[in-house]
Simulated scan of single mutants.
Amino acid sequence: MVENPPFTKKTEGNFTGTEIELIERFAAKHGLLINYEEGSESELIKKLEKYELHLIIGGFEKLNLKSYFYLLRFFHLYLIVFFI
């Protein structure tokens, strides 16, 4: 989790924010446990690449093709991108 209010925020040991609420509702619905790990965007992306994390959140404003690939891989989907 990268702290980026109002999407993600840590106050007094509690994680809050719109993305936190979304992930917690999804986890509750599917019987999943959440383990938050804080870090910088680059640190967490490296862990995601090594399959040490399943998802990173933090209200990211810019997505590149690599970000889309990891997001889609998390949901076991595949995307073919054609460049003209």
Results as ranks from 00 to 15, higher is better:
V2H: 12
V2D: 09
E3Y: 06
E3W: 03
N4Q: 14
P6S: 14
F7N: 09
F7S: 11
F7I: 04
F7E: 07
F7V: 02
T8F: 04
K9W: 09
K9H: 13
K9P: 01
K9V: 04
T11A: 11
E12K: 14
G13M: 10
N14S: 14
N14M: 10
N14G: 03
F15S: 06
F15L: 13
F15W: 15
G17N: 03
G17R: 02
G17I: 04
G17F: 01
E19S: 06
E19G: 01
E19Y: 01
E19L: 02
I20P: 00
I20F: 02
E21P: 00
E21M: 08
L22V: 10
I23D: 01
E24M: 05
E24H: 07
E24T: 09
E24N: 07
F26R: 12
F26V: 12
F26Y: 15
A27K: 05
A28G: 05
A28H: 04
K29Q: 13
G31H: 08
G31E: 07
L32Y: 12
L32V: 02
L32R: 10
L33M: 10
L33P: 00
I34N: 02
N35F: 05
N35A: 09
Y36E: 09
Y36V: 13
Y36R: 10
Y36Q: 09
E37F: 06
E37C: 11
E37V: 15
E38K: 13
E38T: 13
E38F: 05
G39V: 06
S40R: 11
S40E: 06
S40G: 12
E41H: 08
E41T: 09
S42P: 04
S42K: 14
E43K: 10
L44S: 03
L44T: 03
L44Q: 03
K46W: 01
K46P: 00
K46V: 05
K47Q: 15
K47N: 10
K47C: 06
L48W: 06
L48P: 01
E49W: 00
E49R: 09
K50G: 08
K50T: 07
Y51T: 10
Y51H: 14
E52C: 06
E52M: 07
E52W: 00
E52Q: 15
H54D: 15
L55M: 07
L55F: 10
I56H: 00
I56G: 00
I56D: 00
I57L: 15
I57S: 01
G58M: 02
G59C: 10
F60S: 01
F60Y: 01
F60M: 01
E61H: 02
L63E: 02
N64H: 10
L65H: 04
K66H: 02
S67R: 04
S67K: 05
F69R: 02
F69S: 00
Y70K: 05
L71A: 09
L72D: 01
R73D: 15
R73S: 12
F74K: 10
F74W: 11
F74C: 07
F75W: 04
H76K: 13
H76D: 12
L77Q: 11
L77N: 08
Y78V: 13
Y78T: 14
Y78R: 15
I80E: 12
I80R: 14
V81S: 10
V81H: 11
F82C: 04
F82H: 10
F83V: 11
F83K: 12
F83C: 12
F83L: 13
I84W: 12
I84R: 14
